[in-house]
């Protein structure tokens, strides 16, 4: 994609994300989104998801990525699922369907057909209060494993999308605080002129760009480990941007009235989907300890 085309794509997406969340998947279909992703995955996914992060979007576009990568006719995705005592419990980002429904369940790598009335839906307490995700459960008996779906690849696609969204959030967090401290004076100078403050931003920026660099590498290889690593690093970067932003906003940074908390909370909850930074990091470490080699991933 040429720089001009990328720019055009970004402005199309910015406009599209102004629509109500519920209409966004249909509008993406209209745009011919699946074809675009097939041809230009990196440009399309990073543009859509980083912008979704930046504007604190609440749509179900992540479900879309997983379902289309799996190539199954599922209605929605259930995240962070666990099975216990014959019941599968997880998080539903989409609105709970009324009738019979088919769910993709990445954590357990199954496709579940749940008949009308078979789904128990309850509200989910959420660190991010803007999100109306729900807690759902159903009898595990309805889960049918789909043999030909490539779960690894689908999860990796979801992880890349999430990494892009988390990086979008982290960058916006940093942008907000830098704008604030560049304008706010204390001791006769803008706060952003003080070295200890500037250095925090340089570090946060480096962390964000490290994650973006690894995400670029993840889009350039079929090795799913790169996607895991990119998502893990994005989660870590978002935490650093959040920490430095909260601190250098001063008191206002921890208030309800200020916009910052939305970004901080969103970064945290997105980190939990498809493997948290912490879990993915340990998983990568375990694999390296097992094999005795660090995968190269990036080619020149």
């Amino acid at each position: 994609m040429t720089p001009d085309e990328t720019k055009e794509l970004r402005s199309t997406i910015t406009a599209l994300l102004e629509s109500p969340a519920g209409e966004i998947p249909a509008q993406l279909d209209e745009l011919g989104w699946e074809d675009l992703v097939a041809e230009e995955e990196e440009a399309a996914i990073t543009a859509l998801f980083s912008e979704h992060g930046r504007v604190l979007g609440t749509s179900t576009i992540l479900d879309g990525v997983l379902i289309s990568a799996l190539g199954v006719a599922a209605d929605a995705v259930i995240y962070n699922a666990v099975e216990s005592g014959g019941t599968i419990t997880g998080i539903l980002v989409a609105t709970a369907p009324e009738g019979d429904a088919v769910f993709a369940v990445p954590g357990l790598r199954t496709i579940a057909s749940v008949p009308a009335g078979g789904l128990t839906v309850s509200p989910l307490p959420n660190f991010d209060e803007d999100l109306s995700w729900s807690k759902v459960s159903f009898a595990a008996a309805s889960a049918v494993s789909s043999s030909d779906a490539d779960w690894e690849a689908a999860e990796a696609a979801g992880q890349r999308a999430l990494a892009a969204e988390i990086i979008g959030i982290a960058r916006e967090t940093l942008r907000l605080v830098m704008a604030y401290t560049s304008d706010r004076f204390q001791y006769g100078h803008p706060i952003a002129t003080f070295q200890s403050v500037r250095f925090r931003y340089s570090d946060a920026h480096s962390a964000n760009e490290a994650a973006a660099g690894l995400l670029h590498a993840a889009f350039s290889t079929d090795d799913v480990r790169a996607s895991r690593a990119a998502k893990a690093l994005a989660g870590r970067a978002a935490q650093l941007s959040a920490q430095h932003s909260i601190q250098t906003f001063g008191a206002i940074g921890s208030t309800k009235e200020h916009v910052l908390h939305h970004y901080v909370a969103r970064g945290a909850v997105l980190d939990s989907l498809l493997g948290s930074s912490r879990d993915l990091t340990s998983q990568i470490g375990a694999e390296i300890l097992e094999s005795g080699f660090a995968p190269i991933l990036t080619e020149l």
């Binding site: 760009e209 490290a210 994650a211 660099g213 690894l214 670029h216 590498a217 790169a226 690593a229 893990a232 690093l233 870590r236 912490r278 993915l280 990091t281 340990s282 998983q283 990568i284 470490g285 375990a286 390296i288 300890l289 660090a294 995968p295 190269i296 991933l297 990036t298 080619e299 020149l300």
Partner: peptide, 19 residues
């Protein structure tokens, strides 16, 4: 596991950026 994983992220990101 946690430590080696952390380090790997640092080195992999360095390599990706440096490329």
């Amino acid at each position: 596991k946690a430590r080696i994983g952390e380090l790997y992220l640092d080195v992999a990101a360095l390599r990706a950026r440096a490329a």
